[in-house]
């Protein structure tokens, strides 16, 4: 790790002022991702601004949903009774992520900003268009067994987005509240927050320099109350997803009134599937419908030499998740 400076901000303004004074400074919350990257020589910020005492906390019921402060820890949010009751898929996505120790440390704001686990990105000896724009993407001709099959580009085929929470939030139309250095807030739907690699793989989201994610809003809905998160991994626990599905269904008299589908482990970013939702909506809640939806969700997948298995795996994951919710 580089020899950085450290400052503890007690207000958002203090944090913003520190950020203004030091180009390249970064915010420090749970520290789990940041220190991991710094130890691997993938980040060397000159100043860490500790924001752990900032008041972006609390899990509150609002008029139309839940408001969760982004300084809350993954473990706290995952086991919160309101989250468990209203958004079971969100709770499960958190408790199936990382380990108990890391969940006690990591803030959900930081969780949403975790970087790719692509082996080429994480080894500073390799070129990488995410780390150094224009340097190349060795994954194009290299090991690709866990690379994304949806949303990639010829500049970056990257390992699928590694997080779980973002997948569940994407399924249930969450909105992020961002606060800039002047204290001004804006709302960004999570489906507009993440950027696909395209020609600019180093830009992963719309967060501006110095901007903080201060809260997550999730709207209450019947399809969110009847939801689940299924995660398939190379081992039973404590691993990133090979494929995952966050799904929610509102079924009445055997007919699906509304459906939500998002996939993890397959997209360059968390992957919502409007095509699958279209197949599901108005259709009978049975296996044939679910299989049609799974085909639709993966129809544009572009596998490489070693990751075609992800198509069938993701389809089966999605079908099983939908069956779990329909039969609950």
């Amino acid at each position: 790790m580089n020899d950085f400076h450290y400052a503890k901000a007690s207000t958002a303004k203090e944090a913003a002022d520190l950020m203004n004074d030091q180009p390249g400074a970064v915010y420090l919350a749970g520290a789990t991702t940041l220190l991991d990257l710094m130890k691997a020589n993938l980040a060397a910020p000159p100043l860490l601004i500790d924001i752990n005492t900032l008041p972006f906390k609390g899990i509150e019921q609002t008029k139309d949903g839940l408001r969760i402060g982004t300084m809350e820890r993954m473990s706290t949010v995952g086991e919160n009774p309101l989250v468990v009751q209203e958004f079971p898929a969100v709770s499960q996505s958190l408790l199936l992520a990382a380990s108990a120790q890391l969940r006690n440390m990591a803030s959900i704001g930081g969780n949403l900003l975790q970087r790719t686990r692509c082996g080429y990105f994480r080894d500073a000896a390799f070129p990488c268009n995410k780390r150094q724009p224009g340097s190349g993407c060795p994954a194009l001709t290299g090991d690709n067994h866990n690379m994304a099959i949806l949303g990639t580009s010829e500049r970056c085929i990257t390992t699928s987005y590694p997080g779980d929470l973002a997948v569940a939030l994407l399924a249930f139309d969450a909105v992020l509240i961002l606060q800039n250095q002047k204290g001004k807030q804006r709302q960004v739907p999570i489906n507009e927050f993440y950027l696909l690699p395209g020609d600019t793989p180093h830009r992963e989201n719309v967060l501006e320099a110095g901007e903080l994610i201060v809260a997550v809003l999730i709207p209450t809905a019947t399809h969110a109350q009847h939801s689940t998160y299924l995660k398939v991994r190379e081992r039973t626990s404590y691993a990133y997803a090979l494929a995952s599905a966050a799904v929610g269904l509102d079924v009445q008299n055997g007919i699906i009134r509304s459906a939500r589908v998002a996939l993890g482990g397959v997209g360059a970013q968390p992957w919502r599937s409007p095509a699958a939702e279209k197949v599901l909506t108005g259709a009978p809640a049975n296996r044939a419908t679910f299989q049609d939806a799974a085909s639709a969700a993966l129809q544009n997948a572009k596998p490489r030499s070693e990751n075609a298995f992800k198509i069938e795996l993701a389809q089966n994951t999605l079908v099983r998740a939908l069956e779990t919710v329909a039969n609950a």
Binding site: Y6, L28, A31, T32, L35, D36, K39, A40, L48, S75, S99, A100, Q101, L102, N104, M105
Partner: peptide, 22 residues
């Protein structure tokens, strides 16, 4: 790197990996 758990300690009663905090 927070992957093995050998450095687990309790902070305010909660378990954490002490390698990933300052």
């Amino acid at each position: 790197h927070g992957q093995c758990g050998a450095c687990t300690v309790h902070v305010d009663g909660e378990r954490i990996t002490s390698c990933l905090t300052l």
